[in-house]
Design a binder for these strands. Structure first.
Lengths: 379, 379
DNA sequence: CAATATTATTGCGCTTTCGAATTAAAGCAC
DNA sequence: GTGCTTTAATTCGAAAGCGCAATAATATTG
């Protein structure tokens, strides 16, 4: 039993984060991850075990030397809520203290939804997550479309809901649930989800491609989200895009957003307007090809090439409806980039469809919550 | 006289940096800048004064309250060398301990220069800087073209010099001068120069535009250089660029590098090949205009719009020969961006020609040196 | 001119963190 | 088994940094 208690709450939080992420497995690796002396970490671990946040769970034998005493978070120490929404639906997930997704909620929004309705739906979803939860709600993360200021928790603008203007999502949720609340842009939340739950775990530099109704990207650089000076980094859907001859000048998302892609594929195959559920059919179809397909691949290659040359990232994760196009699409785009851009031919370049599903945004919001929480002070 | 000596060398170095940059004027503002307690900073300042690195130089009266005791670096405590080169010349500057540029050296390189010659020229320049210098040489910064790994100090590739391949510039200089050496890419060094000596002082997010023989940008995000996963961020000169009808597909720098711009302007005015020194004439000419000029402005606007949408920065600094085109060019590009991109019309966007001259690269290298140095661990 | 307000700096005891030595828990060689 | 090597964790004295109270230097106000 050691005598001196350490009470730096934020470092305690950081320690839990490392243990939960699996990056730190034992006291020694935790010390390395946090950049603290092993003796100091020992004190912190004592605190966390005494607080019921983490526990020792057996030994990890290496090839030689004393085995590590494995540290694992206590799943029942509390839970985190992640909630995310767009024009169509609110989606929420519950994540236990060990970082496992254990429950979820979806609520469709009527076309007539206004600000009040949406906020109500968000609160309802979060509250519903608490059913049968182990331990208390510790923090809430929220993802919102458009420009979001994570410092103030304000979502600036969302055209789909009347009256949605500088909505202080953080205040609303904090008032209702009385826990810490973190707010972030939708797509950036997905980038965090990738980091906690997906393939981003292994990379410090990656980019999430988010072709949906528009086209944005989220950039992770040196393990941190890149937000830009006005929280508007990654809005490449608005890139000037060469017209197709008939139309004069367009924006990139007019040609490469998800609806635009479905349209281009449908035009090429049937010349008939594309019904909503043809998406699934097309997406499953491994044999889509032809000029339209090639043009789409070339267009995506152009965008990726530009991004790669500016950002020099390690990996692209494709998110959203277009993941339905499968590995093949990513591979072909990759190849097209190399072919088109000699400068990139020699560079490692990898584009992969995200392994996360439709609730990636909510998972990312939950990651925000996990990162926002710090253990209560005191013994 | 205080009792406890503080001996965190890197913090001492950070303190000097703050004082030198002018961001910290007194003990109290230094405490705020470093995030340390005022009492702790007092100890560090005592150390630095005792070491002869900084001094008190009078009082700074505010509107009310006890005046600050102004801290200033001792110019004679030592000096820093910054050296930078390209295919044509080696350029070096000496910066005194207070951060003032006090001497410089230029050495033209023969067309036949190989790796050995260049390294020799670099060493000669740095050595020559030491003439009549006050105090000892404390550190060297070096800027090199192409991909540079600042961690190892290796410059990967430079086509203009035979045999230039993975040259360990840091080792070469460290061996010769026996001081700390920091190496960085040319253009990124310029971005640092902007931060220390130019307009970048007031911004944490900015982009340096470097149209020279190619076209690169250096990105500063949250006060730090963004290098990318393979030290290759910002190589936008290789962006795919729509061909002009005759030629098929090109790279952006084929149309927007400095030589390309001179060519386009010359073609438009005289239809005669442009002699080397027409540059100056053209550059001085405030009345250049016409279709070629407009096309150039539109092309630059396109590039800036793309960059701004990805990076969401605060300010663009135009460097290199094209600064000769003057404020007017920047203003027109700015206007064209707003006109072309509705998404950016509402955003603050500012493009300015750099106030730094031709030795910006060397100054930036000197900044590297200043940042690399830490005080000796005194008694 | 004294009293008060405001801001800067210093003194001092206390807490956190470190560092080096020590103890612990394994595998391996003999 | 008994040492030897290797890696992990703990102990404990020392040091770094903090918080807070005290002191200092200025302007303002009555």
């Amino acid at each position: 039993m050691r005598t001196k208690p350490a009470i730096q709450r934020d470092l305690l939080g950081a320690a839990v984060l490392q243990v939960r992420s699996g990056r730190a497995v034992s006291r020694s690796s935790l010390a390395a991850a946090l950049g603290l002396a092993p003796s100091t970490v020992g004190l912190y671990v004592d605190q966390l075990i005494a607080g019921g946040y983490i526990d020792e769970s057996g030994l990890d034998r290496g090839p030689i030397g004393r085995p590590k005493r494995r540290l694992t978070p206590q799943p029942g120490a509390g839970w985190f809520a992640g909630v995310e929404f767009n024009a169509e639906r609110v989606q929420a997930v519950r994540v236990d203290f060990a970082g496992q997704r254990v429950a979820s909620q979806v609520k469709r929004l009527p076309g007539t939804a206004d600000t009040r309705t949406v906020l109500q739906a968000i609160k309802t979803c979060v509250a519903a997550l608490g059913k049968n939860a182990q331990g208390p709600l510790l923090a809430i993360g929220a993802g919102a479309p458009g420009v979001v200021d994570p410092r103030t928790g304000v979502s600036a603008e969302y055209a789909f809901f009347p009256g949605w203007h500088d909505v202080s999502l953080a205040d609303v949720l904090r008032e209702r649930f009385e826990v810490a609340v973190a707010v972030e842009n939708n797509l950036r939340a997905i980038a965090l989800a990738e980091r906690w739950f997906g393939g981003g775990r292994d990379y410090d530099d990656y980019v999430v491609l988010g072709p949906r109704s528009g086209f944005g990207v989220a950039i992770v650089h040196q393990g941190r989200l890149m937000r830009g000076a006005h929280h508007a980094a990654g809005e490449i859907g608005r890139w000037p895009w060469p017209g197709d001859g008939s139309a004069p000048s367009r924006e990139m998302q007019d040609a490469l957003s998800a609806p635009a892609i479905w349209r281009r594929l449908a035009d090429a195959t049937t010349r008939v307007p594309l019904p909503e559920d043809l998406r699934a059919a097309l997406a499953g179809l491994a044999s889509v090809s032809g000029a339209a397909w090639d043009a789409i691949v070339a267009d995506y290659a152009r965008v990726i090439a530009c991004l790669q040359l500016v950002l020099d990232t390690e990996r692209f994760f494709l998110h959203g409806p277009l993941t339905g196009l499968g590995e093949r699409f990513c591979t072909e785009v990759e190849r097209a980039v190399r072919a088109k851009s000699p400068a990139l031919a020699a560079m490692p370049l990898k584009i992969v469809p995200s392994a996360l599903g439709d609730d990636a945004g909510a998972l990312g919001a939950a990651s925000l919550a996990m990162e926002a929480w710090v253990p209560a002070a005191g013994e």
